[in-house]
């Protein structure tokens, strides 16, 4: 029987999210669908699958994304969930480890793409906040709710950005060991 779980991870926490999905698979719960904070699992043999989360270069349905997924399918890797450019992939365990990248340098390049997205989000929300606060000075009664909402969103996006910076720093440290 399928089971639905709700869980919130920021984009900078995708490594932790991956660990969580693989722990669930080890316990006999295989992810079959994922969208934003909604995860759907179905029973599987413990450890039957390994999961990887990738921030792809292309949006779902585009030629680049289709080509990438056809390529992965050749190696027995299937997509089980997608959200914007995020993709959840799984592979049946065949005795060889399932990795998306061979080197920390490539992992770092992947993490930097995620950080870039977080930076753009942060810049947009901070700019919005500045504009709303400026307007709030002249119309405090009408804009109180809006300013509060944008301030809360800014806090949320800042947390996302911080997680991305932490991830990139960790990978940079690891990368220095192997160069």
């Amino acid at each position: 029987m399928r089971k639905v779980e709700w869980h919130w991870w920021t984009i900078g926490q995708y490594k932790e999210e991956e660990k969580w999905l693989n722990k669930k698979a080890q316990e006999g719960q295989a992810l079959v669908s994922a969208f934003a904070v909604r995860y759907e699992f179905e029973p599987c043999a413990p450890g039957e699958y390994t999961y990887k989360i990738v921030f792809t270069d292309h949006m779902p349905g585009t030629d680049g994304r289709v080509a990438f997924e056809e390529f992965l399918a050749e190696s027995g890797i299937e997509e089980v969930g997608r959200f914007h450019r995020w993709a959840y992939y799984r592979k049946k365990n065949d005795g060889t480890p399932f990795e998306m990248f061979n080197t920390t340098r490539e992992e770092l390049a992947h993490a930097n793409k995620i950080k870039k997205l977080a930076t753009v989000l942060l810049a947009v929300i901070l700019l919005t906040l500045v504009m709303e606060v400026t307007a709030f000075i002249h119309r405090p009664k009408e804009l109180f709710g809006v300013v509060l909402f944008v301030a809360l969103m800014s806090g949320f996006v800042f947390k996302v950005y911080k997680d991305c910076v932490k991830l990139v720093k960790e990978l940079e440290r690891e990368n220095r060991l192997f160069e």
Binding site: V54, F68, F71, L72, E74, S75, I77, T96, P97, E99, M100, F101, N102, T103, E106, H110
Partner: peptide, 27 residues
């Protein structure tokens, strides 16, 4: 050779030491 063939061939040539990751190979 196609993608999966390359992974298998590299694994064989390197005596199992190097298993190309799908994302690495695609890139």
């Amino acid at each position: 050779m196609h993608g999966y063939g390359i992974i298998q061939n590299v694994k064989e040539m390197s005596g199992g030491r190097l298993v190309l990751a799908a994302g690495t190979l695609y890139g």
